[in-house]
Design a protein around this nucleic acid. Structure first.
Length: 271
DNA sequence: AATGATGTCAACCGCCCGGTG
DNA sequence: CCACCGGGCGGTTGACATCAT
């Protein structure tokens, strides 16, 4: 591939591995002075023996101001689940809707918590994966890479619901069934993802977490008014009035209260 | 306390895409 | 139109931490 050399390759002897505090300082100072971009020259210009790719990654995932770090909140988790159901593994797209979170963080979180796992064979999984990667390493020069990747890239369309938070995977009772039905109807009536879908087509054949959760979780997760930064490009892009109107036109009750919560179909939802 | 199993996450790899000459 | 390059993305790896036995 052409782009391979663009970042500076191994023959230039770039340093690899964990970043030291000194390197972080150099990179932060450099980006602070010159701004983001032109990563390929950052490595040398900043006095770092790092590839541009490595510099960019370190900046984006670790040094960039405004990163949250720490535990993913249940609300963020809900957003991740919902957006993943919409878009699949579009981690960077999902990350745009979680201010302070990086695509890498979300990707890791998803893989850790929701990735399909065969619990029964879980024990040997990692070992066999490593054995496989060793095998691949050994075959590296014998097999076309594309073919190799396609063989690995099996669609991730099955989810291990038992790994979901307990509140999300309980077998729905009759009442919950009804609510979920209503939620689906509401989602048809209320195109809350319309703006986002303009930019990114929904992933096909991926079950939505609405298959697992009740509506109060869904609405409480996505309609997160604290996180609205760009009023024209956000899945929670709606104001309270609009939400109230849309909800009522879809046959739901939805009342807002001053203290950071609303009552949706009798459920109190914080935001 | 020792050891193996499992979880977490920073970092790397390889590919794709858009801009440019 | 084509080749090259920079930038970005998703998948994967591996070191370290934590848990279980």
């Amino acid at each position: 591939m052409v782009g391979m050399m663009g970042w500076g390759s191994q023959e230039q002897g770039w340093r690899k591995g964990p970043w030291t505090p000194e390197e972080d300082k150099l990179l932060s100072e450099y980006v602070g002075l010159h701004g983001e971009g032109r990563w390929s020259s950052v490595g040398r210009s900043a006095g770092l023996n790092r590839s541009g790719k490595s510099c960019r990654l370190r900046w984006v995932n670790y040094l960039r101001p405004g990163l949250k770090r720490g535990q993913i909140t249940p609300q963020e988790e809900g957003i991740i689940i919902e957006l993943h159901a919409l878009w699949g593994n579009k981690w960077s797209t999902i990350a745009r809707y979680l201010p302070g979170r990086t695509d890498n963080e979300i990707k890791n979180y998803w893989r850790t918590h929701f990735k399909k796992k065969d619990k029964s064979s879980h024990k040997g999984e990692k070992r066999s994966r490593r054995a496989q990667s060793l095998k691949q390493h050994l075959n590296h020069h014998q097999q076309p890479q594309r073919q190799q990747q396609e063989a690995q890239a099996q669609p991730e369309t099955v989810y291990e619901t038992e790994n979901m938070p307990s509140s999300l995977h309980a077998e729905p009772n009759e009442h919950q069934e009804k609510i979920m039905e209503e939620t689906r109807a509401a989602k048809e009536a209320v195109p809350m993802h319309a703006a986002a879908e303009d930019h990114c087509p929904p992933a096909q054949e991926v079950p939505s977490w609405e298959d697992f959760v009740g509506d109060h979780v869904l609405w409480g997760g996505l309609w997160n008014f604290d996180d609205v930064h760009d009023p024209f490009d956000h899945p929670s892009n709606c104001n309270k009035m609009a939400m109230q109107n849309q909800a009522s036109s879809a046959g739901f009750s939805c009342d807002f209260h001053g203290g950071g919560y609303y009552i949706f179909q009798g459920n109190v939802v914080d935001f």
